[in-house]
Amino acid sequence: MCLGAAMIDVLLYAFLAGIGVAIITGPLGAFIVWRRMAYFGDTLAHSSLLGVALGLLLAVNPTISVIVTCLIFALVLVVLQQQKNLASDTLLGILSHTSLAVGLIAIALMPDIRVDLLSLLFGDLLTVNASDVITIYVVSAIAMFLLVKLWNPLLAITIDEELAQVEGIRFKTVRIAFMLIIALEIAVAMKVVGVLLITALLIIPAATARIFSKTPEQMAFLASLVGCLAVILGLASSWYIDTPAGPSIVLSAGLLFLISLFKKNK
């Protein structure tokens, strides 16, 4: 009986955490797809491992250290992308893998601290506790608030940066705020799917929603719904056939995308 209640708790926390993340990855993922920033998101996600290491080193809450590290990386990337010597994807590739390597080494070298690397890389939804759930909802709420506030200007600069600027939108401010939203999102999504699979949770639901949508808002909403469905399916598979939760969620999203392709053919 006691064990049963504990199991229900584990499942409930995992469910709440997954849904809390999936709701915000929907609209954010739509922007990642529209702005062709999948690789950019990937690079930031990889850099978050370094954020975890720094958090452990400085004894700071890892959520905060990840947000700060991602934000710094995002700003550095924006500056580096202004130079024309290297193509943007080459630059992202260099930073993405270098930061991942540095993060892995930093964690390996950490004295006295035992870190479950696998759970950082692929998530460990079933170890989420009540305080994790609270963190996820607080951070997601902040990200959602910013996203709703910036929705129209973000759409405008996504359609045409220069037109938006002429119409009086403060392009740089909006873009930096958008980076902040991505950083917030990565910090919480890490717990659910891990560093390596965050981009999947962003782009697959959005790409799945595309076929069914007529407006940007519809696509954002449906992406959230697809994300939630993927979380439920992934958790169910993890619960019943003991698959790893993070990859199961991503696989579920991938399967939903595959099914959506049939809709187009008709």
Partner: peptide, 14 residues
């Protein structure tokens, strides 16, 4: 302002 053309991604339904 009327730009030469929009650089709108085909994945954005609008």
């Amino acid at each position: 302002y009327m730009p030469q053309k929009l650089h709108i991604d085909p994945t954005m339904p609008i």
